[in-house]
């Protein structure tokens, strides 16, 4: 392939989705995909054609390198693709007959959910970072267990 103009110019399409101009081509619908959704959510974003993850147009190495308007457009699409509430506060955890019922406050607002106690529904991403998967396959993250209060940590202890 020849030396193509590799700069991407994002825009909002008519239906409210992310579109992009690349050289002479215009794509009305592209999707932004995180390559490292946990380790580095703001870096290495793959831009793919269509609604169904088609061909890869390019990988943005760092979102910070984009202009603020362009960046906002990409982040808006990322928001549509990823919903990973972070648990900030644990109000209560109740366990009953094999299920644990959580009532928590996340960065997306307060929520209640239930997990199955039997399986590996609480995984450690690192020593202090947890990923909780509920019975509906919703996922919740605890960024840093040590940031929770001692009391909250004790409630979580059962799952660690």
């Amino acid at each position: 392939m020849e030396d193509r103009d590799k700069t991407l110019t994002f825009f909002e399409s008519e239906g409210g989705f992310l579109g992009v101009k690349l050289g002479d081509n215009t794509y009305d619908r592209v999707r932004a995909v995180r390559l490292f959704p946990f380790t580095d959510p703001a870096k290495y974003i793959s831009i793919r054609v269509g609604n169904d993850m088609g061909e890869e147009l390019s990988v943005i190495e760092d979102l910070a390198a984009l202009s603020p308007e362009q960046r906002e457009l990409v982040e808006r699409d990322l928001d549509l693709n990823y919903f990973l509430p972070q648990i900030k506060e644990i109000i209560s955890i109740k366990d009953e007959y094999g299920y644990a019922y959580f009532h928590v406050v996340t960065d997306k607002g307060p929520v209640r959910f239930a997990i199955n106690m039997g399986g590996t529904n609480v995984t450690k991403l690192s020593e202090t970072r947890l990923l909780i998967t509920d019975i509906n396959e919703n996922r919740f993250e605890v960024r840093d267990v040590t940031k929770l209060t001692k009391k909250e940590q004790r409630k979580l202890d059962l799952f660690l």
Partner: peptide, 20 residues
């Protein structure tokens, strides 16, 4: 999508997001 889903529709041929 990851942790969520969305309902899209084509209104008069334009792909539109209805809800998440």
């Amino acid at each position: 999508r990851v942790g969520q889903g969305m309902l899209t529709i084509e209104q008069n041929g334009t792909l539109t997001l209805l809800c998440r």
